[in-house]
Amino acid sequence: MNAINLTSIIKRIKSSPLIGLLIISAFYFFGIIGILSNNKEWFIEKTAFNLSLSFLILLTYQKKYSWSLLWAFLFCYFIGFLAEYLGVNFGLIFGDYIYPDTLGPQLGGVPIIIGVNWFLITFCVASLLFPFNINGLLKIVLATIITVLIDVLIEPVAMKLDFWNWENDTIPFQNYLGWAVISFLIFSFYSIVKLPVQNKVAFSLLIWQIIFFAALNIFLI
């Protein structure tokens, strides 16, 4: 009976994206308010939890589950994590930087959650652009550009919130080139495996990510 009830609850939640949208909106909105308040440290410490919750909500409202989705996630996580590992330990791809413990448990100096963050951003961008009936290479390039522009918003805030720290507190241009290369590879793989991008909350999640970092750039930096 309990299993049946749980299945029924999950089906109801999936049939109503409003629930997911409200949760996402609440967490990002109050995240902005909290970080701008005197209790910002408490909210900053919950960043990894917020990323994990966003990931679970994204999966919950995914229309189609397939091997393509799994392979896309694994590839994105692996290449994103590997790039970060090379950056943190050897100064390759992005430049010289380190991760404090703000984003939670680490492996080789890289937060375990960082691969999930790469997937959240790239999947949401793909869900926005991939449905359009335009040239495949053009979609990949546009998706890469949007992702790099999002990183432009992220970087100053990330330094301010101690998510990661750049050498000499300077964001190198190499970082954005690195983001472009890694993003291009990820979106290319998404295109090859035909990633199923129909998702009821992906667009809203993308918008809230942009609002979150744009707002903190305006009021915090």
Rank of each mutant, 00 (worst) to 15 (best):
I19D: 06
L82E: 08
G87C: 05
G108E: 04
L103V: 07
I32V: 15
N50D: 03
F73D: 07
I9A: 14
I10V: 15
L103N: 02
F90I: 01
G109W: 14
K11W: 00
K14Y: 01
I19S: 05
W67D: 06
S68F: 07
L70K: 11
F30W: 12
S54T: 13
G108W: 06
S25L: 07
R12F: 06
F73C: 08
E41Q: 14
L51C: 02
I13D: 06
S8E: 08
K11L: 10
C76K: 02
K11Q: 13
I4Y: 07
Y85F: 15
L74M: 11
L21E: 07
K46M: 12
E45P: 00
S52E: 09
I98P: 01
L51G: 00
F94L: 04
S52Q: 09
L53Y: 10
I9M: 13
L70Y: 12
L92D: 03
K64W: 01
L107Y: 08
S16K: 15
I4D: 14
C76I: 04
K46T: 08
F81K: 04
S15F: 02
E45S: 15
A26E: 08
T47A: 15
E41T: 14
I35T: 00
L18D: 07
L107V: 11
I32F: 00
S52A: 15
K46G: 00
L51I: 15
F75C: 02
S37P: 05
A83D: 04
L59I: 14
I24L: 15
Y65I: 13
S15C: 03
D101Y: 13
L70H: 03
L59H: 02
K46Y: 13
I23Y: 05
F30P: 01
I79E: 10
L69N: 03
F73R: 11
E84F: 09
I13C: 03
A26S: 13
S52L: 15
S25G: 12
Y77N: 01
I23V: 15
I44L: 04
S15I: 01
K46H: 10
T7M: 11
G31L: 03
S25V: 06
S8F: 10
L103T: 05
